[in-house]
Every structure is written in structure tokens, then in C-alpha cells.
Design a protein around this nucleic acid. Structure first.
Lengths: 147, 147
DNA sequence: GTTTTTGCAAACCATTTGCAGGGTC
DNA sequence: GACCCTGCAAATGGTTTGCAAAAAC
């Protein structure tokens, strides 16, 4: 759950027009905690009676991604999901039980990436780190076992 | 470019039947260096006169992935690609210029993942690290500039 | 001989695009 | 007022499925 105004603000800052559908979708996405798929957004929107077309959902997701307000996640299943998050470079830990996410600062990964570049001889421009597991609540609920 | 017999062997070890289409597709994938998409495999197969249906390509890719002979890559574009690789846990560096890849041992990432688990309170079961950049040859070709 | 696998074609699902009307700056 | 954005519906492209014949074990 992120503040919807942050999402809208990012859109504004990136030069996108603040239209009703975008505001509504931004609020909707900010209200979801955990990763959501485009289909999920379409469904939620329908459920709330928003009259937005599929195309607008995809276009808005695209705009929000460009604006840095949401980020794409590649789930182990192969599906694409998105999470509302801060624009700074970071990574996500996703709970496979409840879908909750936590952001992780890049931290020491930068050093590791540098080291990998040195060892392989590649010039590394970009990296993605995604972590999956169980959040504290789900670990608790499962008695320390699986989620 | 991996040895096709390794790929076939992995299928065998995982209990899959060794059929002609699977052998042919395994050889084809092993011969490609760099990541390949399902569509690419379908095309190459057609080009070589293999009479395999799309479905078989997808099913074989699935089998090979389960067998640990190939691994899925999530390209920055959002497309799914695969690479033939060793079954041990590792990560990939992909050249955005020529598609060449290098495998990177998990190495110090394990420690970093542990640290992240401690900081977030999540029990981390799985992680994916993907790196993108330019391989030595492409860096060279571009005079040290972009790929 | 039993069970898995294949090819084909149709079905499916997610995502994109063209276009005319409407809203934002 | 100019330009961006929206909804709709159709087009697209990738992936899966049902099924009878064929192959592997």
C-alpha cells in the first residue's frame, strides 16, 4: 500500500497529463499491496465500476513504469506483475504466501556487480535481482515451515 | 554453444522419453549461442526442415526447463528467452549487443541474500539475478562506447 | 502392451493498434 | 485551440489444449 498521490505525482513530474482514468488507476494500484498483474487491475477497476478500457490500463501501466512509479517484476511463474515503489534503484522481496513485498536497497550488490564485470569482462549496464520467499507473518502462520 | 548430449542426458535423467523431436530440438538449442526465444526455435527448426509442431517446441522447452538443462531469462524488454546451461545454481550476464551470455557463479550473492533476509525478516527461498550489458567483443567493437 | 509423446488446428489469453470523440493544459 | 488521452473493437502474437495416431519403454 503506497500513497496514491506519490504515484500521481510521478506521472505529473514525468510530463503526463493528469486525467481521471489515470488518477483512478493510480489510486487503485496504490491500494493493492503486493504485486498485481494487468489483468488484476482490469478486474479491480471493473469491480469498482470504473469504466476504463483494457487499453487504457495497459497504457497507464506503461506510463507509470516510465515515470518510475511502478516497476515490473518477473514472477517465477513467468507472469509479469508490477509493484508501486520508490523511484530509486532497488530490488524486491516478494512473499509467495500473501504477496506482500519489501524493497531492498541496492547496497552491497553494486560491489558484487562490479566484481562480476571484472571477472567476465562484460561491461554491465543493468541488473535485476528478485527475491522470493515468505514474509514474517506467513512464516509465523506456517509455524516456521513453508508458506 | 553447449554440448547437445548434456541436454539430452538431462532429459533422460529426469525421466523423459528420448524421442526424435526432443533430440533434434535439444541439438538445435545447444547449437545456438546466446538466449533464444520459443519463436526462434520454431523458426530454426523449420529452416532445418524439422517437421515439429509449435506445441512440441513449447512442450520440449518446458521439459528441458524442468530437467534443468535450460533456464528462463527475463529480458529487459519483457520477453522470455532461454539459455542452455549447467544445472547448478548460477546467474547469467547477457550481452545486449550480440546476445552472447556468460554464467556467473552464485558466489558472494548467497551472503548478500542472507543479509537481506535478516534485514527484511523474510525467509528467502529463491532468487534471480540477471545482468545485462556488453561483452568484451562488443565493447571493443564500439570503441569502449555503447553496444 | 501400456504409457508417453507428437502434430495439427482450434482455443486462449495477454497486449497492441487504429480511430473518432473528449479532456487537459 | 493544440495536443494528449480515452474507449471501443478488431488485430496480433505468444502459448496452451483436445485428440487420434505413432513411438518409446
Amino acid at each position: 500500500m503506497t500513497d496514491a498521490s506519490l504515484v500521481v505525482g510521478a506521472l505529473d513530474a514525468a510530463g503526463y497529463r493528469l486525467t481521471a482514468p489515470r488518477r483512478a488507476l493510480a489510486a487503485l494500484m496504490a491500494a493493492i499491496n503486493g504485486p498485481f498483474t494487468a489483468a488484476r487491475v482490469v478486474d479491480e477497476a471493473r469491480g469498482r465500476g470504473l469504466r476504463v478500457g483494457r487499453a487504457t490500463v495497459f497504457r497507464t501501466i506503461d506510463a507509470l513504469e516510465r515515470a518510475g512509479a511502478i516497476e515490473r517484476l518477473d514472477l517465477p511463474s513467468g507472469d509479469h506483475a508490477y509493484v508501486a515503489c520508490a523511484p530509486a534503484h532497488h530490488h524486491h522481496v516478494v512473499c509467495s504466501g500473501c504477496g506482500r513485498t519489501a524493497e531492498v536497497a541496492d547496497g552491497d550488490l553494486a560491489a558484487l556487480v562490479g566484481e562480476i564485470g571484472r571477472r567476465t569482462g562484460f561491461r554491465i549496464d543493468e541488473h535485476r535481482l528478485e527475491l522470493f520467499g515468505s514474509c514474517p507473518a506467513c512464516v509465523e502462520a506456517a509455524g516456521g515451515g513453508d508458506a
